[in-house]
Design a protein around this nucleic acid. Sequence first.
DNA 1: GATGATTTGTACGTATGTATA
DNA 2: ATATACATACGTACAAATCAT
Lengths: 222, 222
Amino acid sequence: MAGKRTLVRAGTTVDQMVRALADGIVTGALRPGAKLDEVSLAGRFEVSRTPVREALGQLSAMGLVDRRPNRGAIVAVVTQEHLSSMFESMAELEGICARFSAERMTTAERHALERDHHDSARLVRLNAEEDYEAYNTGFHSRLYRGAHSSHILEITAATRARLAPFRRAQFRLPGRLAKSWDEHDAIVTAVMRGDAASAGAAARAHVSIVSEASSVFASSGL
Amino acid sequence: MAGKRTLVRAGTTVDQMVRALADGIVTGALRPGAKLDEVSLAGRFEVSRTPVREALGQLSAMGLVDRRPNRGAIVAVVTQEHLSSMFESMAELEGICARFSAERMTTAERHALERDHHDSARLVRLNAEEDYEAYNTGFHSRLYRGAHSSHILEITAATRARLAPFRRAQFRLPGRLAKSWDEHDAIVTAVMRGDAASAGAAARAHVSIVSEASSVFASSGL
DNA sequence: GATGATTTGTACGTATGTATA
DNA sequence: ATATACATACGTACAAATCAT
């Protein structure tokens, strides 16, 4: 028991499994290197091995799992080099999104961004790590969508998803919340002014600092 | 050996099909909107439906095919908006690669880039469209690899693959070969000088022009 | 609107290939 | 090194859903 809820309305079983497994990987429930046995997963989800295989195939294509022919599937384990590369890419992608957002956001989008940003100051004062992390996800999503470019949104969100397992504990670092808010503030200010170059630079710097904070965990806790 | 990606293994049937289908889509043999019948494909490749389904799943995750539940799979058809967004992203990604290449390429990589670029002038003089297109692919691959960032390489190559069907006929436009070479020259010159900003700007401009050239075909011939 | 035909989604069985004793 | 054990890759069968008539 304690198994997965069989949601009838969410289309195909494969999609449900993909979402569930991706969520497990992203939230850290399934840690990098953990082997994903087809029969175990089939039992856990109460389905046959066929949809399991298909789900693993999609997750592999997403880069979340590594699947070697005849040797099984494991949660993707990334090298330190690839991890750095992903953070580096993330910084560039966020920079692009912020730059485009500064140029293209509607006034409604700008105001929503600013309002939520100001509201989030309360979470910082309360040191509400969980809530701030949730807000932070939304903040970045706003910037991705504000770029008004579906493909940029796609690859940025995908890269973010792949980095999520390595970025989870960042807000536990002392003072990180306040620092994050200040960095957000620089981005928001630039976006509100329509200053694309500054917005891009601020967003790049923001991610770069997260990268450094996370590498501490990557090298130790992983 | 730092084994990173196991993409090259030709062992499994699924991988062969993925490559074959992706190639068919990219080369235009399979046109956007074409329905991909599982049984037909199974017969065509002389395998059962199972590997076909798995291949379609992976291609779907790559964005090359659209797959709706219980309604079959078709070669991905992109809207004009998404196409613009992909070209826009491509310009940014190429810009990043060129910028990084200018900063990070080894001297060996720089010399190889410059040598091949100069050699390609012959193809322009001969107006050898096919050969120049092949060279051009290699030229861009060099820039992607020269960035020395595995993830940037990954998403740039993936985006390029998705754009390939819409970029194929660009060199048929009169004078496009010479123009392309001049644009390459600007990139190569900047990279050789280690001028990251110029290299990035030149690469972005290069793709942007290709975008405009291709949109002619996208709106008419597709 | 209902029914039949076609196609996809899932289950299960067998064979092949890899790792281990 | 040979053999055993186990997990994956593929094939076939059935069920469910969609489309056409």
